[in-house]
């Protein structure tokens, strides 16, 4: 049984003007990702990981080539269509967590559902379920400023998963976390991937993250250098998953 891939990029190129020259953040990247993958873009800083993730997430558009996500051509989407794609199908997790400071943990997670027009009871059920998933149900009323980095990133994960998106894009999600918290959230995400079948794509240069990946795409200077299946089983280092 061959399903059409969830994400397909073909000769995807992104250039930025740089004085008289242009620099290529992405240079003819052709990749495809299937539903349920737990994949990572790795490579040195400046290799184009974030740029690729942003284009897949319809936050950015390619200069040339194409990216088809959930059957939609990213380069052809209007602003509204792109916003809708993000709203329904894509969850983002950022290095800097990006929680909204004036809202509680509960409200931050609920935020992702606000535009979906769900009845309040269902919204509430989903938010509580998502908080359970990341073991933060007891912090529902806290504000972001009262949370540790690990807790903040778990709220961000809850916010990304609460709408049960098809794709979660995580850009350096562990860069601001210590080792224990890093392993913690990676296990949470691996568990989500296993149980809900959510597709994860990471951008990272953190070795801890790479250990969990089942597919590793290495980018160098905006080009795909290697694309390998990996075992996704980290060593026994690091603590067990606990909140």
């Amino acid at each position: 049984m061959t399903e059409t891939p969830l994400i397909v990029t073909k000769d995807l190129t992104k250039t930025y003007p740089m004085g008289l020259h242009t620099i290529a953040a992405l240079d003819s990247v052709s990749l495809s990702f299937d539903k349920g993958e737990f994949a990572g873009l790795v490579g040195p800083s400046g290799s184009g990981k974030t740029t690729l993730l942003n284009i897949i997430g319809s936050l950015d558009t390619p200069t040339a080539g194409s990216a088809v996500v959930m059957g939609q051509r990213i380069e052809a989407l209007t602003h509204k269509e792109a916003a809708r794609l993000r709203n329904r199908h894509v969850g983002f997790i950022f290095q800097t967590f990006n929680l909204l400071p004036v809202y509680t943990v509960y409200e931050n997670v609920e935020f992702a559902l606000l535009l979906l027009g769900l009845p309040p009871a269902e919204r509430r059920r989903k938010v509580l379920a998502a908080l359970e998933w990341v073991h933060l149900a007891d912090r529902a009323k806290s504000r972001p400023a009262q949370l540790s980095g690990g807790e903040s990133q778990r709220v961000a994960i809850a916010r990304a998963i609460v709408k049960e998106p098809d794709i979660i894009l995580a850009d350096e999600p562990t860069a601001n976390l210590d080792a224990q918290n890093s392993h913690n959230i990676l296990r949470t995400m691996a568990r989500l991937n296993g149980e809900l079948g959510t597709t994860f794509i990471f951008a990272t240069h953190d070795f801890k993250v790479m250990q969990y990946l089942r597919r590793t795409v290495t980018l160098i200077d905006g080009r795909v250098d290697t694309d390998q299946q990996t075992d996704g089983r980290p060593g026994t280092s690091g603590a067990g998953e606990q909140p």
Binding site: L59, R86, N87, F94, N98, L100, A112, L115
Partner: peptide, 16 residues
């Protein structure tokens, strides 16, 4: 700015 970026990532249009 970052908050706006976050809102956009969550699916808010610029108009919103």
């Amino acid at each position: 700015r970052r908050e706006m970026g976050t809102l956009m990532a969550l699916g808010f249009t610029r108009g919103k």
